[in-house]
Design a protein around this nucleic acid. Structure first.
Lengths: 150, 150
DNA sequence: CAAGGTATGTCAGACTGCTGACATGAGTCA
DNA sequence: TGACTCATGTCAGCAGTCTGACATACCTTG
């Protein structure tokens, strides 16, 4: 087995490195969330609702980077299991504002601590200046990519 | 619709920003690869083979951040359609080294140009120094995350 | 040399998330 | 007011990926 050959172009690509970092972060989050019976999207949904109560299904989907269809499936399960509540009828339009139940809040507390430990570990080798630089760089990439190419 | 409310904790999290950037990159890549009938993993496989001919199924899987089972499904399809060749029997052990066919190389050429344009766009707003800083930061994150927490 | 551990390729089943599609409600403009 | 556009919630079908499992080949270690 050739464990690690000399790096080529892919190794110098920021895009590839971004994917690698994101993949590592996701794997680390899955590892700590699995014992709690949670997926990353599941956790993201709860965390979003804790920080911004009343978000709609579509808003949650955007915040968790999935489609609103996928988020809808998740929300229905969370509602069925009593982690989240949504009014039976929309107070205005079709938008159904979702909120955490006490049970949802308890469930999130554990997950939140686990995820925070992952983030702390991820940042452990970086100075504050490096973190700021990374923050600015990532925001710049996002801004450039959001502009449609065509 | 509350388009963009005041940012909260999530907005200041490097982990969240990393996920956002990765998601934006993936979406941009999918957008340019779709007209070519290619998925991101599909492209990644071809690109890896172009830069390191003879990679095995498992090595390709690691390089594309999927399981070896998933990569195997893809490789079989690519082999069936004549983009890739693998020897019928392993020259040594069970490892089957894969190689691009001329057809695979032609297919990759178009995709590669499309993906490169995305990366150029992503980096358009950053100076060389910022790119270097981002590079170092991402590598640091990867290194810290690869160390198991337990 | 035998035994355990590790890595590989592959098959099968299950699942998650996505695309496509529809009806409905809200804002916009002539 | 009526037509148009856009966003939302939801249903159905599909593609890609994952987990689980098995047989096999290499590499250590006693």
């Amino acid at each position: 087995m050739s464990q690690d050959e000399a790096g080529v172009d892919l190794e110098t690509s920021l895009g590839y490195l971004l994917k690698e970092a994101s993949s590592a972060l996701r794997a680390a989050m899955e590892a700590v969330l699995r014992p709690l019976g949670m997926t990353v999207t599941h956790y993201s949904c709860l965390e979003l609702l804790a920080q911004r109560p009343g978000l709609s299904n579509s808003e949650l989907a955007r915040g968790a980077f999935v489609t609103r269809q996928s988020m809808n499936v998740l929300l229905q399960a969370l509602e069925r299991d009593g982690y989240v509540t949504r009014p039976a009828e929309a107070p205005v339009g079709k938008v159904l504002p979702a909120r955490l139940t006490p049970r949802g809040r308890r469930s999130l507390a554990k997950a939140s601590a686990a995820v925070r430990s992952v983030e702390v570990r991820m940042l452990s080798g970086m100075t504050d200046a490096e973190q700021s630089a990374a923050y600015a760089a990532l925001q710049s990439m996002i801004r450039s990519l959001q502009t449609p190419s065509s």
